[in-house]
Design a protein around this nucleic acid. Structure first.
Lengths: 195, 195
DNA sequence: CGTCTATTTGAATGTACTCAAAAGCGGTGG
DNA sequence: CCACCGCTTTTGAGTACATTCAAATAGACG
């Protein structure tokens, strides 16, 4: 199991001892995935947080009408977006799906709890993770009410350079908070603005 | 200084020793506020996280065009929404304003850092705070693209019962992601649906 | 190849916005 | 105490950004 990416990520925030690394590697589960494979399903009780080792993933919420709403994409070196999986409630309303081939490191919810109890230091790591994610999410929320869709699409491309080729457009549309049809028109408008 | 509300809030998540309580009370700053008073201003370097002891507050982001976008309201017993204040960057784009008379307990950014270094346990408290706030924010984000404004308004009333009388409508509108004019029309529509 | 899903395109529609102006409300000072 | 001033809320007309519905086209997969 290759934990290099994850360890490097953690070490950006806290220092790690041998013992901590070993504990961590003992509870992580390597989980390869294939294109379109559902890794964490909405409505399932077995939950874990995923760290992307290779490939890309999308995490989305399925609303009561059955429509999917993308919470976040993840590339190698990122955690997937299903923070709900770590919470107290038995089932998550989020689904995480593989895009293309790749591999995830799964941190089961219980292992996460044991990790935090045993090595309090990890609280700091996750605190910082959630804190920055929260601020980003707040700003993204504001953006969706103050910036038109075309600009949001351009901002998205600037924020995640090189990532778009791996993502189905319907998910990009959902991430931007618009319909796939409208994103198609937005793209057409950007492609031929001169006439 | 009355720290009862805050201590009770913290004790929902972690246990506190005498020493920790004393340290905390030593760094907190009681800050009464008057109607409309700006407590933490957008663009200012001096930053702190606020806990509401009495009254209500609103925290909003001011975009480049000068429009305000409400991130969150706070009632007694809640933290205000300016989590950005705890981050690394020198200035916050968020403003926190008093609604009516009230009092805030301010936790300065540096004191927050000392608190976390000295008593690692508080990392757990804030981790849980941010984690739940993040999930709520994610769900609120989705709601804004899957639910029409009228329903969002009703959801808002259900989620914060009894709070609306304290809040100017223009801020409620901003919280819902609509214009004040449109909220006015939404309310009129709800008031007289029979004809 | 044939099927299934994703994307594109177009027309009609709607939800929410902009702009403008009037009415309401609260606070302040004469 | 009341009149005035500024800000919030209401109302209306016209508009626009984005959606829904429907159908054609393009791609991916077995």
């Amino acid at each position: 199991m290759d934990t290099q990416l994850l360890l490097a990520h953690i070490r950006q925030f806290i220092e790690l001892t041998e013992e901590e690394v070993e504990f961590l590697e003992g509870v992580l589960i390597a989980r390869p995935f294939k294109p379109g494979e559902l890794i964490v399903r909405s409505g399932e009780p077995a939950r874990h947080l995923g760290f992307v080792n290779a490939g890309h993933t999308v995490t989305y919420y399925t609303d009561p009408q059955g429509d999917d709403h993308v919470i976040r994409f993840a590339a190698p070196g990122w955690w997937t977006g299903d923070t709900h999986s770590l919470g107290l409630t038995p089932v998550t309303p989020f689904t995480t799906k593989g895009l293309g081939d790749g591999e995830l490191l799964l941190l089961p919810r219980l292992a996460h709890q044991h990790l935090l109890e045993r090595y309090l230091k990890f609280e700091r790591y996750f605190r910082q993770l959630f804190q920055t994610a929260l601020v980003r999410q707040q700003l993204r929320f504001v953006e969706n009410h103050s910036v038109p869709a075309v600009q949001r699409y351009l901002n998205f491309q600037a924020a995640f350079p090189g990532m778009e080729p791996y993502l189905p457009q319907k998910y990009v549309a959902s991430y931007l908070g618009i319909t796939p049809e409208f994103l198609s028109k937005v793209r057409r408008g950007l492609a031929l603005p001169p006439p």
